[in-house]
Simulated assay, not measured.
Amino acid sequence: MLDTIQAINRTASFNRWAGFEVHHAADGEAELRMNWREEDMGQYAGFLHAGMIAALLDTVSGYAASTKAGRVLASHFSVNCISPAIGSAFVARGRVVKAGRKQVFVVAELYAQPEGQGEDALKLVATGNAILVPIAVEELQPKPAA
């Protein structure tokens, strides 16, 4: 499963630009890592931009859901920013709460890794909730114009 999710991650140009790395994906769980780049990831005060926070939580939620339901799309997504996202790297973890036939419910957390410290010093900076829907490959094909 990890190899499949890593391959999917490599096909997403945004994920490649951001430097998302899939470190874990199995049975309803996923984990991403991203290194901080001061030159293009910060907001006005120098913290990780909320858009990047949302992208990490959304992506890890989708990957966790896909380990249970295959291809999925988000139908609802929410983010809670808990504290300023300051660190040399960020770790996003997603976990499926319930996988049904029509909806997959996922919770996610984003941690900041302080400069010069290991993963044992991770600080929770944001949480997210997502509802994803399984989709068939045919649904991804563009429809001809009417």
Results as ranks from 00 to 15, higher is better:
Ala54Asn: 10
Ala54Glu: 01
Ala55Phe: 01
Ala55Tyr: 03
Ala55Ile: 00
Ala55Val: 00
Ala55Ser: 15
Ala55Lys: 04
Ala55Gly: 11
Leu56Arg: 03
Leu56Glu: 10
Leu56Gln: 13
Leu57Met: 04
Leu57Gln: 04
Leu57Gly: 00
Leu57Lys: 05
Leu57Ala: 07
Leu57Glu: 07
Asp58Ala: 02
Asp58Leu: 03
Asp58Asn: 10
Thr59Val: 01
Thr59Ser: 12
Thr59Phe: 03
Thr59Cys: 03
Val60Met: 11
Val60Tyr: 07
Val60Pro: 04
Val60Lys: 08
Val60His: 10
Val60Glu: 03
Val60Cys: 09
Ser61Leu: 06
Gly62Trp: 06
Tyr63Met: 12
Tyr63Pro: 01
Tyr63Arg: 01
Tyr63Ser: 02
Ala64Cys: 10
Ala64His: 02
Ala64Pro: 07
Ala64Phe: 10
Ala65Leu: 10
Ala65Thr: 08
Ser66Leu: 07
Ser66Gln: 15
Lys68Glu: 14
Lys68Asn: 08
Lys68Val: 09
Lys68Leu: 12
Ala69Cys: 09
Ala69Glu: 02
Ala69Ser: 12
Gly70Leu: 07
Gly70Cys: 05
Gly70Met: 09
Arg71Thr: 13
Val72Cys: 05
Val72Glu: 03
Leu73Ser: 13
Leu73Thr: 15
Leu73Val: 15
Ala74Arg: 03
Ala74Ile: 05
Ala74Gln: 09
Ala74Asn: 10
Ser75Phe: 13
Ser75Lys: 13
His76Asp: 14
His76Phe: 11
His76Val: 00
His76Thr: 13
His76Glu: 15
His76Ser: 15
Phe77Ala: 02
Phe77Cys: 01
Ser78Gln: 13
Ser78Leu: 01
Ser78His: 06
Ser78Asn: 11
Ser78Met: 06
Val79Ile: 14
Val79Ala: 00
Val79Asp: 00
Asn80Ser: 14
Cys81Met: 14
Cys81Lys: 13
Ile82Ser: 06
Ile82Asp: 02
Ile82Pro: 02
Ile82His: 10
Ile82Asn: 06
Ser83Arg: 15
Pro84Met: 12
Pro84Phe: 04
Pro84Asp: 08
Pro84Lys: 06
Pro84Arg: 06
Ala85Lys: 01
Ala85Gln: 09
Ala85Thr: 03
Ala85Leu: 08
Ala85Met: 14
Ile86Asn: 08
Ile86Lys: 13
Ile86Arg: 14
Ile86Gly: 00
Gly87Glu: 04
Gly87Asn: 06
